[in-house]
């Protein structure tokens, strides 16, 4: 087997090397129960990264996800008592609409997605601040347990969060690999002009891709809100950059067309292993950010497949 054949597996190899390395330095890291807990804790981040994958897969980016999630935490908290479990539809609908609006602005108004989604994020932030009255709200505990208590249970040792993440991953994978829509996404990401020339409705596909990323952001926000039992216009802050990093480390380049949701799974795990390894290895808190940056450079240098990149921008 040559290096060429191994290339698609570089992210997996990086992940395995990291886990073994940290495990060798501190064996308690490999304790199955704590590993499961570790993975369960990052489910909202993973869901957000899944959504981000769709935006990046077509060569765009969605910077509104964090604010959409923020907005959703507020919406969920405010309307939970009124609508019960159906508040989920409201949340997901909001995410879909905001994502679709970003997509429309990008494709029909020619505003680069970097700016369009950033600006849509500001609009979502306004909504969150208005709706929350600029306060941190907490959920009605009874209504929360009645409607969403199932999200955080355990079945034979498997946290339900992981089941939800698994189902969403399967759904995203199905969309990406087993539907016409998924193939169209790949076509748009690999070469938009060629996709247009082949008669694909590129605008619709792109708008739908952004709508999907908005939807996933909303689901992440909803889980986050239930988990922390509250809503706040800043609750999900800090997740955006990590979600982008997770997608890119997994091997989906910003130019689009390559990679996909499975890569994002690996990327998210790599990010989480790096982050938690620093806690396990007792790295000084002030040093963590710097070391994270350095390891990130090393990880991405190892994982990205440069063979399909002619020019690196």
């Amino acid at each position: 087997m040559s290096i060429e054949n191994l290339k698609p597996y570089f992210p997996w190899i990086t992940l395995a090397v990291l886990v073994l390395l940290v495990g060798a330095l501190n064996p308690s890291f490999l304790n199955p129960a704590s590993l499961v807990q570790l993975v369960a804790d990052i489910v909202p981040l993973f869901i957000m990264a899944l959504g981000m994958t769709f935006a990046i897969y077509i060569g765009g980016i969605d910077l509104s996800m964090q604010q959409v999630a923020n907005l959703v935490t507020v919406v969920a908290t405010v309307y939970l008592v009124q609508y019960g479990i159906f508040v989920a539809f409201l949340c997901i609908g909001a995410g879909f609409v905001i994502g679709a609006a970003s997509g429309w602005i990008t494709t029909r108004q020619f505003v680069p997605s970097f700016v369009a989604t950033l600006a849509m994020g500001f609009i979502a932030l306004s909504g969150a601040r208005f709706l929350s009255g600029e306060r941190a709200l907490s959920m009605n505990a009874d209504a929360r347990d009645a409607s969403f208590g199932w999200m955080f249970g355990n079945t034979v040792g498997i946290p339900h969060e992981l089941v939800i993440a698994g189902l969403l991953l399967a759904l995203a994978w199905f969309l990406q690999s087993r539907t016409t829509f998924g193939r169209a996404l790949k076509a748009v990401g690999s070469g938009e002009l060629a996709a247009v020339a082949s008669g694909l409705k590129v605008d619709q596909i792109k708008i739908l891709a952004f709508a999907l990323s908005g939807t996933f952001a909303a689901i992440a926000g909803l889980m986050f809100s239930v988990k922390l039992s509250g809503g706040d216009a800043n609750l999900a802050n800090g997740f955006l950059i990590l979600a982008i990093v997770a997608v890119l480390v997994g091997g989906t380049p910003l130019t689009g067309g390559v990679g996909g949701v499975i890569n994002t799974l690996v990327g998210t795990l790599i990010v989480v292993v790096i982050r938690s390894a620093m806690v396990y290895l007792e790295v000084d808190a002030t040093m963590q950010q710097m070391i994270f940056g350095v390891i990130l450079i090393v990880a991405i240098a190892m994982t990205i497949d440069r063979s399909k990149m002619r020019i690196v921008k």
Binding site: M290, G293, L296, K313
Partner: peptide
């Protein structure tokens, strides 16, 4: 290292803040 600038500079930003 042929890392796309978005990612390289983002990671360097982490290093800087750190």
């Amino acid at each position: 290292l042929k890392i796309p600038s978005f990612m390289a500079s983002l990671a360097m930003g982490f290093v800087g803040t750190g």
